[in-house]
């Protein structure tokens, strides 16, 4: 039997389900007992999915207190001795996982996208070189096996429910780090187009940028723009793609009414799929597109939104 700990961070309970799919692939043919660690976080999404819910309520333990949280993890591990510990690659997960692995003197693999277990020989696949290559990593040493997983990479498929055991963690030995939150402020543009997986990009031939948002939402992406619309002051420079804007590498780029001057195209790096919608099918952008839709951008957007919604209803 294997014992695995998954960290269910506050605010990411639903996303944490994907960690359980990773666990299933890590130990495909073995009985696994899953433990969820919940620190000041709500358990409802994971209740009935993990065998054991370890909960710690302590308002004095601040998020991002790496020292304190690392102490908590090591104390819990000392108590239960896990075979594997999994994190979501959230900003906090990225911070705690390495310190825990260092304390436990074990290896850690970041941003895992695929898992293979060949008779106990574990290999993990992860992107490196800013996503340009994929690397196969072999786990050596005594363990526990540790990894972090990006949100959305694994999809939880389990349907069985279990009777979760709730354990309130008592008497753990941990310190508090010397950090203090002074305040927070929202970002003006709450996303960074360099991080987006899908970009719906509008150019001069796209007279209404706001109507792109719905399509972006449906495809789980964000809106970006070419210089033409930024110059007109319609959208902020922060979402401009190109030489004087940002260089982006989404998996899908939909160019709506964008001519594709070299200055724009220089901002497109390693994009697997490009769709362009243009009244001129010979516009340069079309030459680097998988599919070119010859036509007006906005009516196309409206029609595609309708089609996707239809698909959802069926």
């Amino acid at each position: 039997m294997k014992k695995v700990l998954v960290y269910v961070e506050d605010g990411y309970a639903q996303e944490s389900l994907s960690l359980l799919e990773a666990v299933r692939q890590l130990y495909p043919d073995q009985h696994v007992e899953t433990y969820a660690l919940l620190i000041n976080s709500d358990a409802s999404a994971i209740d009935g999915v993990c065998d054991v819910l370890l909960t710690l309520e302590d308002g004095t333990l601040q998020p991002f207190d790496q020292k304190g949280l690392c102490d908590v993890f090591t104390s819990v591990h000392t108590r239960y001795s896990f075979d594997a510990i999994l994190f979501l690659a959230t900003p906090m997960g990225r911070c705690i996982a390495p310190s825990v692995s260092m304390r436990l003197e074990t290896g850690l693999v970041a941003d895992v996208t695929a898992i293979a277990n060949d008779d106990g020989q574990i290999s993990l696949i992860r992107p490196a070189y800013s996503g340009k290559i994929m690397a196969g990593i072999r786990i050596k040493g005594e363990g526990p096996v540790m990894m972090s997983i990006r949100i959305g990479v694994f999809t939880y498929q389990g349907t069985d429910t279990v009777q979760s055991t709730n354990i309130g963690l008592e008497g753990l030995d941990y310190r508090h780090g010397n950090i203090k939150v002074m305040g927070t402020k929202e970002k003006k543009i709450p996303y960074d187009i360099r991080e987006s997986d899908v970009l719906i990009s509008g150019g001069a031939g796209c007279s209404d940028m706001e109507s792109l948002q719905d399509l972006a939402d449906l495809l789980g992406g964000h809106v970006s723009a070419s210089r033409a619309v930024v110059d007109k002051g319609i959208v902020p420079r922060a979402i401009q793609v190109g030489q004087s804007g940002k260089t982006v590498s989404p998996s899908l780029y939909i160019a709506l009414g964008i001519h594709g001057a070299l200055q724009h195209v220089e901002g497109l790096k390693d994009i697997p799929h490009i769709i362009s919608v243009n009244t001129n099918k010979d516009a340069p952008i079309c030459s680097i597109s998988d599919i070119v839709v010859e036509g007006d951008a906005l009516p196309f957007v409206a029609k595609l939104i309708r089609r996707i919604k239809e698909g959802q209803q069926r």
Binding site: A135, R138, I288
Partner: peptide, 17 residues
């Protein structure tokens, strides 16, 4: 504790336009 055993580039589709 970990070792890189293989690397490969992501496959990119050739564009058909």
């Amino acid at each position: 504790r970990t070792q890189v055993v293989s690397t490969h580039t992501k496959e990119h589709m050739t564009r058909r336009k």
